[in-house]
Deep mutational scan, measured.
Amino acid sequence: FACQWLNAHFEVNPDCSVSRAEMYSEYLSTCSKLARGGILTSTGFYKCLRTVFPNHTVKRVEDSSSNGQAHIHVVGVKRR
């Protein structure tokens, strides 16, 4: 389900990036709304992400508004 969900909601775009945590959060929200069992852990979800978008990269984005915490963004992917 996770791989199908990724294909339905995201697409390849080399000029874009999406927060990896936001992607997983949206996946969890969809699973909750659909009352799905067998929800992937974040590790399983990221493995699926690598399968669906094998050419993506990740980058660390520093967020000055959150006490220097960094966010991981998936580069080469955008929301549909």
Rank of each mutant, 00 (worst) to 15 (best):
G68A: 13
L49I: 13
L49S: 01
R36H: 06
S66F: 14
R36D: 15
V74F: 03
E62I: 15
Y46A: 12
N55L: 13
E26N: 03
E22C: 06
H56F: 12
F45Q: 00
T51R: 12
H9Q: 08
T57L: 09
E22N: 15
S42L: 09
H73K: 14
T57P: 10
G38V: 14
C31V: 13
E22I: 11
H73M: 13
S29T: 06
V77C: 04
A70V: 11
S17E: 15
A21E: 13
S32M: 05
V77A: 03
K47Y: 02
T41D: 14
S64P: 14
N55W: 13
S65H: 13
E22K: 04
F45A: 00
T30P: 02
I72Y: 06
M23P: 01
S17Q: 05
V77E: 00
C48P: 01
V74P: 00
H56I: 07
Q69V: 10
V18W: 02
N7M: 03
F10P: 00
H9R: 08
R36I: 03
N7K: 08
P54K: 05
C3L: 06
Y46G: 12
G76Q: 02
P54C: 03
L34P: 11
T41F: 04
L34C: 11
H73S: 07
F1D: 01
Y24H: 01
V77R: 00
I72T: 14
N7D: 07
S19T: 12
C16P: 01
C16W: 08
P54T: 07
E11A: 06
L40G: 06
W5H: 02
S25E: 13
R20F: 03
A35L: 08
A21R: 09
F53Y: 15
G37W: 06
Y46C: 15
G37Q: 05
A35Y: 06
A35C: 09
T41C: 14
L34R: 14
S66G: 10
N55Q: 03
F10E: 01
Q69M: 10
T57K: 06
R60A: 10
H56K: 01
V61S: 11
E62K: 09
Q4K: 11
S19G: 12
Y46H: 09
F53R: 01
V61I: 07
P54H: 03
D63H: 07
R50Q: 14
V18C: 11
D63L: 06
Q4S: 13
H73G: 07
G44V: 08
M23Q: 00
G38A: 08
G37T: 09
S66D: 15
Q4G: 12
Q4E: 15
R36F: 06
P54F: 03
Y24E: 11
I72G: 07
S19A: 07
I39V: 11
K47A: 09
H56L: 11
C3Y: 07
Y24D: 01
F53A: 01
K59N: 14
E22L: 09
K47L: 06
K47T: 08
L28D: 03
S66Q: 13
C48Y: 07
G38K: 04
G76F: 01
M23R: 00
A70P: 14
A70W: 07
V75M: 14
V61N: 08
D63Q: 15
C31N: 10
R20H: 05
F1A: 06
G44W: 11
C16A: 14
S25R: 10
Y27F: 10
C31D: 07
F45D: 00
H9G: 08
S32H: 02
E11S: 09
S19L: 12
Y46L: 06
G44E: 12
V74A: 09
N55D: 10
C31E: 14
E26Q: 06
G37A: 10
C3T: 07
P54M: 08
E11D: 05
V58S: 05
I39Q: 15
F53G: 01
S17C: 08
T41L: 09
I39N: 14
L28K: 12
N13E: 10
K47V: 06
V77W: 00
T51E: 04
V12D: 15
Y46T: 13
R60S: 11
S25W: 04
C16E: 08
A2T: 13
H73T: 11
S17F: 10
L34Q: 06
L34Y: 12
T30N: 15
F45C: 01
S29D: 13
Q4L: 06
T41V: 07
V12F: 10
T30R: 12
N67K: 14
E22W: 04
S19M: 09
S42P: 04
T51L: 13
N13K: 09
P54E: 09
K59H: 07
R36L: 10
F45S: 00
A70H: 04
W5T: 00
D15T: 05
Q4P: 02
C48L: 13
G68W: 07
T30V: 07
C3K: 01
A21N: 09
V77P: 00
S25I: 02
S19E: 08
G44A: 09
R20A: 06
T57M: 04
H71W: 10
Q69W: 05
S66T: 06
V12P: 07
A8L: 07
L40D: 02
P14D: 02
V12T: 15
A35H: 11
S25Q: 13
S42N: 02
C16K: 10
C48H: 04
G68M: 11
L28S: 14
M23H: 01
G37Y: 10
I39G: 13
S64G: 10
R20K: 11
R36G: 14
E62N: 15
V12R: 11
L34A: 11
H9N: 07
A2Q: 00
F1S: 09
R50Y: 06
G76I: 01
E62V: 08
V12S: 14
V12M: 14
E11V: 08
V18P: 00
V12L: 09
S65A: 03
F10M: 03
I72C: 07
S25G: 14
V75Q: 11
G44F: 04
V52E: 12
H9C: 04
D15K: 04
L34G: 14
R60G: 14
T57S: 09
N13V: 14
S29Y: 05
N7E: 10
P54W: 04
Q69P: 08
A2I: 06
S32Y: 02
Q69R: 11
L49C: 12
V18D: 01
G37E: 03
R60N: 04
N55T: 13
V74Y: 15
T51N: 15
R60D: 04
N67P: 04
S17H: 02
H73I: 06
Q69T: 08
G38M: 09
E11T: 12
S19D: 11
H71D: 10
A2F: 01
T51H: 13
S29W: 03
G37M: 02
I39S: 13
P14H: 04
Q69I: 10
C16Y: 15
N13A: 08
D63R: 04
P14N: 04
G44R: 14
G38T: 13
V12N: 06
Y46K: 14
F1I: 01
K33D: 09
G38E: 15
K33H: 10
E22Y: 06
S65G: 03
V52S: 08
L40M: 10
S66V: 02
V18F: 03
N55K: 04
P14I: 03
V52T: 05
S42C: 02
W5F: 11
Q69C: 07
T51C: 12
H56Q: 06
L28F: 15
H9D: 02
G44C: 06
F10L: 04
G76M: 05
L28Y: 15
T41W: 04
W5M: 04
H9M: 05
G68C: 03
A21G: 14
F53I: 00
L40T: 11
V58I: 02
K47E: 11
A35V: 06
N67R: 12
S66I: 15
V61A: 12
Y27G: 01
N7R: 08
T41E: 06
R36C: 08
S42A: 11
V18G: 02
S42W: 06
Q4M: 06
V52N: 13
T30A: 09
A8S: 06
E22S: 14
N13D: 11
G68R: 11
G44Q: 12
H56D: 02
E11P: 00
V61C: 11
M23A: 04
A8Q: 11
K33P: 08
S29Q: 08
V77T: 02
L40A: 09
V77L: 14
A2C: 03
L40C: 08
Q4T: 12
A70Y: 05
R36A: 14
A70I: 11
L40S: 07
V52Y: 01
C16D: 02
V18A: 08
N13R: 09
I39R: 12
E26W: 07
V75K: 02
E62D: 10
S17T: 07
T41R: 07
E62Y: 05
E26F: 12
V75F: 11
T57V: 02
K47I: 04
K47R: 04
A70D: 05
Y24Q: 02
T57G: 13
G38P: 13
A8H: 06
S32W: 04
C31Y: 02
E62T: 10
S65K: 05
H9S: 14
V52R: 03
Y46S: 12
A8E: 10
H73Q: 04
G76D: 03
V18H: 15
I72E: 14
V58A: 08
V75G: 15
A70N: 14
E26D: 03
F10Y: 15
F1R: 15
Y24N: 01
A21L: 14
S65E: 07
G38D: 09
N67W: 11
R50T: 11
G38W: 03
F10W: 09
L28R: 09
N7I: 02
K33R: 10
H56Y: 03
C16M: 15
L34K: 15
G76C: 02
L49P: 01
V61Y: 15
V52H: 05
R36E: 12
Q69L: 11
T51K: 02
H56A: 09
D63G: 13
V52D: 00
P54N: 03
C48W: 02
H9V: 04
A70F: 02
E62W: 14
D15L: 04
S42Y: 01
S17D: 03
Y24P: 00
V61Q: 14
H9Y: 04
